[in-house]
């Protein structure tokens, strides 16, 4: 466990705090009593309070590094396979990658009927990247954060998808695509869809607009928050199980069993959540392409 004198709640909070780099506002009193000079200062946040005080002008260094790192792993892995890809007999990792590509391609073909060469690569990227990010959940919760702590890095959250910034960032990316395709493909039809459905009468335009805009906005939020919620809850349970290990020698066996059980169950969840994120992206973009 991180730190010998921590209480359980401190341990949990510590595990749920991102390594944050950001700008503290001027006049803020830091943890060590020093006061930030006027005009603010870019520093590494010490604890959740400072991170909160930074507001929007901060960045979760750990989330970004793990997320981009895993994205790079995805790109390198799939690029190396793409280089080797031939119409001959596939083997080893090529087989596995082709299976995933074929699976994604089938899913896209099943639910996306317009012609757009971007959707399939987008879906593949989402599926594999989100799966990799979720996979970090299966790394024992203390292994990497504690190792890094010994090296002087205070906070570390290694599962990017337990950070709402990460999941909402992707969801917003999808949302922008949805808006883009809705406007370019439907044009005026998109406006009609927003104002004249479900009640096709000019009187109902405000009501229609309100309902449709809420419905539209709900899509990226549900997309991002579903993934975040599932992964956050899963991570939380791993942390609680890890905390249980410190509760005494007689808790060792039950905690170990719970750890194994939850990890096995979680294998299903991380795959399922990656799949759901991909499928919903495809479905939303498919809706953006279909003119009613």
């Amino acid at each position: 466990m991180a730190g010998e004198n921590q209480t359980v709640s401190e341990y949990i909070v510590h595990h749920l705090t991102n390594l944050t780099y950001g700008k503290l506002p001027g006049g803020y009193e830091r943890y060590d009593g020093s006061v930030v000079a006027d005009g603010g200062a870019w520093v590494m946040a010490h604890g959740g309070d400072e991170a909160a005080a930074m507001g929007f002008s901060a960045i979760h260094v750990d989330s970004m590094i793990w997320s981009i790192g895993l994205g790079v792993v995805f790109c390198l892995l799939f690029r190396s396979v793409a280089r080797k890809a031939s119409s001959g007999v596939p083997s080893g990792v090529v087989n596995a990658v082709e299976m995933i590509v074929g699976f994604v391609d089938n899913t896209v073909k099943d639910s996306f009927h317009a012609r757009n060469s971007m959707i399939a690569p987008l879906a593949l990227t989402i599926f594999v990247w989100v799966f990799f990010m979720n996979l970090m959940d299966l790394v024992p919760v203390d292994l990497i954060p504690h190792t890094l702590m010994l090296l002087g890095v205070e906070y570390q959250k290694i599962v990017p998808s337990t950070d709402p910034n990460i999941t909402m960032g992707m969801a917003l990316g999808v949302f922008i695509l949805m808006l883009y395709y809705s406007i370019t493909i439907k044009g005026v039809g998109f406006l009609k869809e927003l104002t004249l459905t479900p009640f096709n009468h000019p009187v109902f335009i405000p009501i229609n607009l309100f309902m449709e805009v809420v419905g539209l906005l709900a899509k990226p939020f549900s997309l991002g928050l579903r993934l975040f919620g599932n992964m956050y809850a899963g991570e939380m349970i791993f942390i609680l199980i890890a905390a249980l290990f410190s509760a005494g020698i007689m808790w060792l066996l039950p905690a170990a069993l719970m750890q194994i059980g939850w990890a096995i169950f979680h294998v299903l969840i991380i795959t399922l959540q990656a799949f759901i994120f991909m499928v919903l992206t495809i479905v939303y973009l498919s809706m953006a392409h279909e003119d009613h």
Binding site: G55, F56, I59, C75, P121, I166, G169, M170, G173
Partner: peptide, 18 residues
Amino acid sequence: MNINLTLIGQMLAFVAFV
């Protein structure tokens, strides 16, 4: 659990990877 620049960073990374 603050919403901050990470959001933008992830969006840009997302676009790049796609």
